[in-house]
Design a protein around this nucleic acid. Structure first.
Length: 195
DNA sequence: GGTATGATTGACT
DNA sequence: GTCAATCATACCA
């Protein structure tokens, strides 16, 4: 498992540190290859305008899940960071499928393996994440998190799909991974994001 | 009460 | 490249 206070630090550092960490939900998962950081002072964040019923988990203790419905269709999975009340979380955007490949295929029979967990909505569908997991602790079932197997080159760039704070380089990915939701631009390769 | 807007995806021109 | 699906939230009347 990850160390207990892994999530109790600034959300951008956690987003970067999560690249390479292995995630499983009820035994189905793989290596995290793409994340984004969202902070309560960030106009693109759900927590920017304060606590609501939907984003309540973002203001809870770190190390828990925040699951919300996107565009009325998809679920998106976040990890709450920093401290209780801070309203910060890391969005999981892509993983490299490794465990439970048969279950992923059954849940997403149309997509091939490369696209199976490439994108926040696809990832939750393949792993079986739903709104019922909103607010659950990440150090207990059905979640399992294992430290990164080894160092990897990390790239940073602007976040995807937002209309405000579009210049903040708070999207992180594993360099050269085939399982990203979208490639990182050449200009961002090797760039170090601010903590 | 109404209406606009998404941390998306898949189908289609 | 365009566009619809589908709904919680925010904002306005």
């Amino acid at each position: 498992m990850l160390e207990p206070d892994f999530f109790a630090r600034d959300v951008v550092s956690v987003a970067r540190a999560l690249i390479g960490v292995r995630l499983a939900v009820a035994g189905v998962g793989g290596t995290i290859v793409e994340t984004e950081a969202y902070h309560h002072e960030d106009p693109a964040s759900h927590s920017f305008n304060g606590r609501t019923q939907r984003n309540a988990a973002m203001f809870g203790p770190p190390g828990r899940a925040y699951v919300y419905r996107s565009y009325g269709i998809h679920w998106c999975l976040n990890f709450v960071c920093e401290a209780e009340g801070s309203g910060s979380a890391v969005l999981l955007r892509a993983i490299e499928p490794e465990a439970g490949l048969e279950e992923m295929r059954d849940r997403r029979w149309r997509a091939d393996t490369r696209l199976r967990c490439a994108g926040p909505g696809r990832l939750t569908q393949s792993l079986g994440v739903t709104g019922s997991m909103d607010g659950l602790a990440l150090d207990a079932a059905p979640f399992a998190l294992l430290p990164a197997a080894g160092p990897g080159e990390i790239v940073a760039g602007p976040r995807i799909g937002i209309s405000r704070a579009i210049d903040l380089p708070w999207r992180f990915g594993l360099a050269g991974s085939r399982f990203l939701s979208r490639p990182f631009g050449r200009a961002q390769r090797g760039q170090v994001a601010p903590a």
